[in-house]
């Protein structure tokens, strides 16, 4: 099967304000590929660069090296006009359902925005908006309401509907469920999976939560300090991680079961001890291998 998106040796560097300040390199030689209809999960902690990778794919981050190929075409340095043309192919669902919807516009105005920008006529756009609301299990009369009248989970459904409006092939999901309550989170994740099975859309699914990523991803990549440290089959990366960082991450998440959490805690402390010893040995042999 062909790949849909291929990221190769991607560097992203943000200029830092102030004369003579060193620019901040957010991504270092990141490679990743996504096939049609596939979910690739991207896990990491805050500052690891996972959001930056998503923004680079969307054309919202300054790419300074490497390439992002979408269906064989490099999209890393597109002009504003070409980028706009790509909007029917790549879409986004952001983390914060509160700031990702303009509080001053009604739901219908928000959802019809991408449609009218493409020249879809008003009546057609309205039909499509009702259809979209149905797809994300919201009542059709929700269109006349303002975002503030909806709960967090409902807002996130609206954001998903907006992403679906142009039938994209790839949706970048940046922490789409981390601001939601536990039970809402599970329902929104199921909605993501259902939509994928129906439409064959691919997801780049960014999250800090291994359990969420495990639930939705076919394959998983783990980011740490702007690099991908481990990637592979979802079950393997989230079940039996190999890289020390992934292991730490895996062990740090508390299991919702008192008995097993006690064991995991003990295991975690042992692992940390082991890694510390290994580090000390590495230091002792004077080989500062990693530039952290």
């Amino acid at each position: 099967m062909t790949t849909l998106l291929e990221v190769k040796d991607l560097d992203v560097t943000y200029p830092v304000k102030g004369f003579g300040k060193k620019p901040f390199q957010a991504l270092r030689g990141v490679s990743l590929d996504i096939r049609p209809g596939e979910t690739v999960g991207l896990v990491g902690e805050s500052g690891s660069g996972k959001t930056t990778l998503g923004r680079a794919v969307l054309g919202l981050a300054p790419v300074t090296g490497g390439s992002i190929e979408y269906r064989g075409r490099d999209i890393a340095h597109l002009g504003r006009r070409e980028r706009r043309a790509l909007s029917s192919e790549i879409q986004v669902v952001f983390q914060d359902p509160y700031s990702s919807l303009n509080p001053a516009l009604t739901i219908e105005q928000i959802l019809s925005e991408p449609l009218t920008a493409r020249g879809v006529a008003g009546s057609q756009a309205r039909t499509r908006v009702r259809e979209l609301l149905g797809q994300v299990n919201l009542p059709a009369d929700a269109g006349d309401r303002l975002p503030r009248e909806f709960s967090g989970g409902q807002r996130q459904r609206i954001a998903i509907a907006r992403a679906l409006a142009l039938d994209p092939q790839l949706i970048v999901c940046d922490e789409p469920v981390s601001a939601l309550d536990l039970s809402t989170q599970a329902r929104v994740l199921d909605l993501f999976i259902e939509i994928q099975e129906r439409t064959g859309v691919a997801y780049l699914f960014i999250s800090h939560d291994l359990a969420v990523v495990r639930h939705i991803s076919h394959r998983v990549a783990v980011m740490y300090h702007g690099e991908i440290v481990e990637s592979g089959d979802g079950d393997q990366v989230t079940g039996a991680p190999e890289h020390p960082y992934t292991q730490r991450l895996f062990m740090a998440a508390p299991v919702p079961d008192p008995v097993r959490q006690e064991q995991r805690r003990a295991e975690r402390l042992r692992l940390l001890e082991q890694q510390r010893e290994a580090d000390e040995q590495a230091l002792a042999t004077a080989s500062p291998g990693r530039t952290a």
Partner: peptide, 25 residues
């Protein structure tokens, strides 16, 4: 019960995409 059911930890992983060769890069 509904809260405990909504917990994702230890749920089955989704597995590889059907119809693709199992290549983990």
């Amino acid at each position: 019960q509904s809260l405990l059911d909504a917990i994702l930890e230890d749920g089955p992983a989704r597995g590889a995409l059907a119809g693709t060769p199992e290549v983990a890069r």
